[in-house]
Amino acid sequence: MFLQQLINGISVGGIYALIATGYALIYSLLGFSNWAHGEVAMFGAYIALTLVTRLSSPFLGALAFGILAAGVASVLNEKIAYKHIRDKGSPTMFLMIAAMGISTTYQNGAMVVFGPKFQMFPSMFDVTTIQLGSVSIGILDVISLITSAIALILLELLVNKSKVGLGIRTVASNSYTASLMGININRYFSLVFLIAGLLAGSAGVLLGLKYSVYPTMGNVGLKAFIASVLGGLGSVRGAIIGAIIIGVLETFVSGYLNSGLRDLFTFGLLILILLIKPSGLMGVDVEDKA
């Protein structure tokens, strides 16, 4: 039972991590939490669902297209709103307010277009479970765990080992200096929104397959936001660790106590950690330069 809960928790945490890393990436470049990011996941899920149910597209192709659509949506959010606010030199709070507006727009847009009901993907995988000794895991959990793991490893390699990653890290450390060095920082901003969007889209599709698709499913972005804050804003590894902690915590609270209390524990843990370490688990304490 314990081991099974743990694996379920990590699997859920993996999905959170896909979104949380997007928060971390965007924060490291732009210094704000783009918490319309969960809505991007929702958007990807709806596109994939629509392709499968209405246009009876090939299943995997539809999923891939949904993920791609989420990536594009994420870049559009940046191009349409955030970029203009940055160009005007407005305070960071305006970016957060814009994110709130975008999130409201997506949620209510989905409500208008797709209706408030919960929709399911046609079941592609039988509800089979894999038996490992005394532990039985749903096949979807295994798939989602493997997918998240692959995506996160690819992300780690991209950020830390590739030339593009070096560029991203340069812009993140100081976008002004980077622009003086002749780096086209706006290209990197778009790129990071694209990567973040693709990751969020994957999360959206996985969540849709596992549970269902509905207009407010983007609220999972809040969990991911908490995970990224817990791990330390701007830290990709911190976000992954934070996401897994939250996934496991939630699964255990639901399993052993009461699923209604899940969020209470999550937020309790968050506030506790912030009080002990105000910049999260892996965040760096930067003193503002005056």
Binding site: S33, M96, F225, L233, D263, I271, S279, G280
Partner: peptide
């Protein structure tokens, strides 16, 4: 900023969950 925002968000949700509970 962001850290403060998330704690207020958490507070709002906690109040709701608590009142339901």
């Amino acid at each position: 900023g962001d850290y403060f925002l998330i704690t207020t968000l958490g507070f709002g949700e906690c109040v709701r969950v608590l009142f339901e509970y």
